[in-house]
Design a protein around this nucleic acid. Structure first.
Lengths: 338, 338
DNA sequence: AAAATTAGAACAAACGTTTGCGCTAAATAT
DNA sequence: ATATTTAGCGCAAACGTTTGTTCTAATTTT
């Protein structure tokens, strides 16, 4: 067993050519540099025989290229982001690049470290659903020529491209649906407060309520997690007056709501209605199929990728900041009070 | 804006020391090489000022280290594997390494390419839930000194460490539960046929049935996907005689079952009972809470990581191939026929 | 006062590629 | 027969680090 890692030098020696020639053949530049078929075959064959594995470190160091895109998301354990990761991964691979995924765990510090890690790995592009606090770093990266595209989360005040859902619109749709069905006491349980999607959803909720001339029952919570949904729902249910509907800002939160309501013997939608942001394959098969605002996740990913590669290839880009329309999926969790 | 990427050479010049010294300070080897506090401070400060980002390509090339662990799974869109990815990612990060994730999409060819990619990125360890056809390659890697640990899926005939669930036992538990409740016509819908977990589950199912002296109603399917579960359930429901229970070998499959049964107006568990492998937060809140065999995913990940790092650090390892006990979670989807 | 030790740091050779440029021999044009 | 082009390939200098070895001046020991 050869203990020594084989390099193109070994191939060159064995094939009786220069390392230059080996490099060119193995990089598909044989035609360009008119290497004879004979040499090509010889080289490719010895490479195979020797079990050659190119060393990206060396190649990357010299060429400055890495063929790598970074994806940083707040939480791989959130199905919404898991789906994004899956999509992005596939798309990127299709274009001959590979993805390295970072999970920031919603933590500014971790996100920052991931960012450093990624940069030191010479990534050529960055897709990120930012936690929200490292905006200036991202802006700087983008300005320095690293193509950055934000996904889902973004910065309104910074000139960084993004692709997301029209969260405001989505929240308005959800709220209006509730209002149309006669709900007046509507509690909203939110996720990460300083994330843009959350802010816009809250705005949409508030505006829709205001337009109807109704005060929100409550707006609480601070995390896109089941625990948060559970805790806030418990608190809500223990108030002297209960809402007639709850608007959860993610399926993870909604899951917590359902859990709390079941514990407290609150029926959905008979006692309290529930509507959520984000869709999920299971929602249709819950005890009460959950009405939701569905985000066009696939399209978001595709557009973001398209955007990114346009920048990588220096093509002209149209709209830099795009918001895609969400969709209201009517299921059974909202009761008509009229 | 400095167009030129700053290197330790720049720092050395500006700080008035050699690049050796810079390298040593920035790598935390200052004490070891007794660099004065003064130089240390100077170096660290100029590094910060110049916005220095280490170049992993260069460092890796020279040192041969990458601080990188690869994780290859069959499908990021399967919640079971998404959870694994999330766990692994966190654990690896805690140990100062970073994870690069590959999604093989259950495809032997893609898996192979991912493997090559990973190797050319000089990974120091590999965690993989293999598709099943690249065993010899993995064996070879492992023999060549790259620590490899299989997760969930593994190879029985090869001497590669693995951590998984006792799938046989799990299937036996599920089947016996069904049998104890008086079910005799039991259909099993399986996932990827040549994956070890699937094989062992099928074995467990068959053995438990045989022990009860009952023939399986049917064993069909070939993919851990919703589509597969849906299709096979549809087929089953159109047979002249229906089973009294279905054993789905994953939640994704179960989801397809539920969909098909709903379409055909089959009530769970009144008309047909359903039990599944794998747990999921939503299972408790489905129209019929789904009884399942829950895998100790967290423990699997932890043990796999522990194993991997033991090998990395050349520590002595105890058991190389471990199967963890699954757990039967009683919910409401199995009807007692007695 | 000479010898030995120690603190603090620098030299320079790798690591495995990529790539601009240059070279030779053969083929073709003049 | 000479000049030009072309086919086919190699030289050697990077890329930005890490690291074994060496060096000098200062300090301590004898």
């Amino acid at each position: 067993m050869a203990r020594h890692k084989v390099s193109i030098v070994d191939i060159a020696k064995k094939a009786g050519v220069s390392i230059t020639t080996v490099s060119r053949v193995l990089n598909g530049k044989a035609e360009q540099y008119r290497i004879s078929k004979k040499s090509q075959n010889k080289i490719r064959e010895t490479a195979r025989k020797l079990n050659y594995i190119p060393n990206q470190f060396a190649a990357g160091l010299k060429s400055g290229k890495s063929n790598t895109i970074a994806l940083i998301i707040p939480s791989l354990s959130n199905p919404f982001f898991a789906e994004i990761a899956s999509e992005i991964n596939a798309e990127v691979r299709n274009r001959g690049y590979i993805t390295i995924i970072g999970d920031s765990d919603e933590d500014r510090q971790i996100e920052n470290e991931e960012l450093l890690q990624m940069r030191s790995r010479n990534i050529e592009g960055l897709l990120i659903a930012p936690t929200g606090q490292n905006g200036s770093i991202l802006k700087q990266l983008n300005d320095q020529g690293l193509p950055v595209v934000c996904i889902d989360r973004y910065f309104e005040e910074l000139d960084i491209p993004y692709v997301s859902t029209d969260n405001y619109q989505g929240a308005v749709m959800a709220t209006q649906h509730l209002l149309e069905y006669g709900h007046k006491r509507i509690a909203c349980i939110q996720g990460k407060q300083d994330s843009v999607p959350n802010k816009r959803r809250i705005e949409g909720f508030k505006d829709a309520m205001k337009e109807a001339g109704i005060e929100p029952f409550s707006i609480t919570g601070n995390d896109f997690s089941e625990q948060n949904g559970y805790k806030e729902t418990k608190l809500i249910l223990h108030k002297r007056q209960r809402p007639t509907a709850i608007f959860a800002l993610s399926t993870t939160i909604a899951l917590g709501c359902i859990k709390a309501m079941r514990e407290e013997n609150v029926a959905i939608p008979d006692d309290i209605s529930l509507i959520t942001f984000d869709d999920h394959p299971f929602l249709d098969y819950l005890a009460t199929p959950l009405t939701c605002i569905s985000q066009p996740t696939r399209d978001i990913c595709r557009m973001a990728i398209k955007h990114l590669f346009f920048k990588l290839e220096n093509k002209e880009i149209g709209e830099k900041q795009v918001l895609l329309k969400p969709e209201l999926k009517y299921r059974k969790s909202v009761r008509n009070l009229l």
